[in-house]
């Protein structure tokens, strides 16, 4: 190798480490995106709260019409014993409904994929249950079902189970046809095919359904309680909102509303986290793109 060739290759090596203008711009943009991802929503939220507070103060709006954010927070703390009890009740119904929806939805989906005839016979019922607004069925349910908790649970379940059923059914039917042939060639039993092929294939679909069903079971629980309407011990957040409305206790309505919203966000986040943990090793949705 001659001296000039050596220096050329050295220059090339150096050039490989140089970041050109375009790359530098991309790196800067990525950095700002990373920062903005968390700070932007925080800033906007803070500004919104501030604006809310100023509107209330400057216009001297009375607290029984629109309380300021400070008062809502104060009420949240002051009424915590009542609200936390109500939150616990709502949470309990939501979680039980979601569990039953998961068991029922996945169970029915498995049954549907085992027999076309079962699917043909019962799928219409599932659709009818889904498209009928729960508010309109709920009064009937509370007439027929004596136990209040069971009634609430049933309402929330009706709302929540369909996305799990339909997503899981889709997933169980989405197996790779070559893999299905392979299983057939190796003489797999129905159970082996379900356990090793169909259920793993359906997992991402199921988790998508779970994210929707989590929010829906909360909505179902709240709506059912509005309809059920009975108060006293064992009432959830929806009842507290109604009650506070009758008494024009607007700050407490806001406080209860915030608790419901936060619960919804927490459920969604937990479902997303679960999804990420289960899929991160292999599924496209959980993979980081290499640019």
């Amino acid at each position: 190798m001659t001296a000039s060739e050596l220096s050329q290759s050295a220059a090339r090596q150096q050039a490989e480490q140089v970041v050109d203008e375009e790359e530098a711009r991309r790196a800067r943009r990525e950095m700002w995106e990373q920062i903005g991802k968390w700070t932007l929503p925080a800033i906007v939220l803070f500004l919104a709260l501030f604006a809310w507070d100023r509107v209330v103060v400057w216009n001297q709006i009375p607290h029984y019409i629109l309380p300021g954010p400070g008062l809502v927070l104060e009420t949240l703390i002051k009424d915590w014993p009542i609200l936390s009890d109500a939150l616990w009740v709502t949470l309990k119904i939501t979680m039980m409904a979601l569990s039953v929806a998961v068991i029922g939805g996945v169970g029915l989906a498995v049954l549907f994929t085992q027999s076309r005839f079962v699917e043909m016979s019962f799928y219409p019922f599932a659709v009818i249950l889904q498209v009928t607004p729960v508010v309109s069925i709920a009064p009937l349910i509370f007439i027929y079902v004596d136990n209040r908790l069971a009634g609430l649970l049933l309402c929330a379940w009706i709302v929540a189970f369909f996305p799990i059923l339909s997503n899981t059914t889709l997933g169980l039917n989405s197996t790779d046809h070559n893999l299905r042939d392979l299983y057939k060639i190796y003489g797999a039993t129905r159970w082996q095919r379900l356990r090793y092929l169909q259920l793993p294939t359906a997992l991402p679909y199921f988790l998508g359904g779970l994210r929707i069903a989590g929010g829906l079971s909360l909505i179902g629980a709240v709506v059912a309680e509005y309809v059920a309407g009975t108060g006293g011990i064992g009432s959830g957040l929806a009842f507290r909102i109604l009650e506070a409305g009758y008494r024009l206790n607007i700050p407490r309505m806001f406080a209860a509303l915030i608790l419901i919203a936060v619960t919804g966000v927490v459920i969604f986040t937990l479902a997303s986290l679960l999804s990420h943990l289960l899929l991160r090793k292999w599924h496209e949705s959980a993979l980081k793109r290499e640019s």
Binding site: N178, D181, L182, Y183, Y196, W282
Partner: peptide, 23 residues
């Protein structure tokens, strides 16, 4: 097959184990 037809949720060794597993 024309495609590799591997199970994406299983490791390479688990994929190769499949014919035995089904037995």
């Amino acid at each position: 097959f024309q495609e590799p037809t591997l199970m994406p949720w299983a490791t390479v060794a688990q994929n190769v184990w499949l014919p035995f597993r089904l037995r």
